[in-house]
Design a binder for these strands. Structure first.
Lengths: 196, 196
DNA sequence: TTAGATACGGAACGTTGTTCCGTTTTGCAA
DNA sequence: TTGCAAAACGGAACAACGTTCCGTATCTAA
């Protein structure tokens, strides 16, 4: 069953199953895509299919949970990087991490546009969670004079999401790399240098 | 079996089955989406599933055939409209038809991005088939002074395809309508009035 | 009309998402 | 520690799907 509090299930075995399922699903999805059979995930988690459906009443619930988990991990990386690196480098490394996240989520992207209402809130979840994370890094980098100060985090996230097209091997297209490089050069320009 | 010549199967019953299947699939897809079961299409066509797979070895082949059929119908409408209406009106009515086509193809759009290589040539097929059709209408309208002469058919097709987002009821979003209206106003402006 | 090729129908197979229920595990109280 | 009710588990079973197979029906050419 899905719990409303953040502590997960009350019983220890249920907590173990849930953690094993999320981990197994993440690995299976990254290898076989989001269309991988539920049984495969159950087997990898060392769990019966009944247990999968106890925790995630529908297959899409599992997909949503894994997606949100990975978004959260990406968001949580921001303060860690901010504490470890100087502002400019923290921003760079976080952007690389976000690009990698977007590039490996091809299967998810197809699911998002499948019309299933279960996936409808996911894009907003991503923006709500990552925009503040990126916003902090941007402010710090701007204060250090590394980037301009007039860039909206949401705009940058969406632009990257649209430009980061993965190739067949899981890496980025050469074209994607060039477009992203262009975008990031723009980040360092003074505002309105071209059109203002 | 898929024939290479344009006449379809040699035997009369096979031709009947093929026509009934394409018609039934078109109707079923428009009502239930492209994920509709093959059996449902076979039943609507008054045909067994074996016959479906004789004509379309894979389910995706049926989807591709219906898609191409509808693209062809859209392309063929251009010369008909050009013969029936004055140039400006012919262009308007064809654009409306193309918008309707795009708006009702939500399910197809998801299939296109599913990663299945069977759908990979479809976008180019659409452009190759519709760009000349639209090109003729555009030239005629430009010659009549109804629209500017420097618009590439492909650009216009792609722009419409990206802007025409259907709502839940099958109609166009109000936002889509506004954006398309803007685009079409731009069609009537002299070239480069704003940025030149 | 007949014979051979072609096409047909639908039962059957393998794979999937999901449900069901007998069994096991867990936490708490006696 | 032990007993017990609630919670969770496992996997067989179900339904729906894409696809295959083959005995039967239909067509065309002679």
């Amino acid at each position: 069953m899905v719990e409303s509090n953040g502590d997960g299930p009350a019983r220890a075995d249920a907590r173990r199953s849930l953690a094993a399922l999320l981990q197994a699903a993440k690995e299976v999805f990254s290898v076989s895509g989001v269309d991988a059979p539920v049984r495969m995930i159950a087997e990898k988690a060392g769990v019966g299919v009944g247990t999968v459906y106890r925790h995630f009443p529908q297959r899409s619930d599992l997909i949503v949970a894994v997606f949100r988990n990975e978004v959260d991990a990406c968001a949580n990386a921001a303060p860690v990087l901010a504490a470890q690196c100087p502002p400019g480098e923290a921003l760079d490394r976080w952007l690389q991490r976000f690009i990698a996240f977007v590039a490996t989520k091809r299967g998810f992207a197809a699911a998002l546009h499948s019309g299933d209402p279960a996936y409808e809130p996911l894009p907003n979840y991503l923006l709500d969670r990552l925009a503040p994370a990126l916003g902090g890094l941007l402010s710090a980098a701007a204060a250090a004079g590394k980037v301009r100060a007039d860039v909206e985090p949401v705009d940058l996230l969406l632009a990257i999401a649209r430009l980061a097209a993965p190739d067949d091997t899981g890496g980025l297209t050469a074209q994607s790399r060039r477009m992203l490089a262009l975008l990031f050069d723009g980040l360092r320009l003074p505002p309105g240098a071209m059109w203002g």
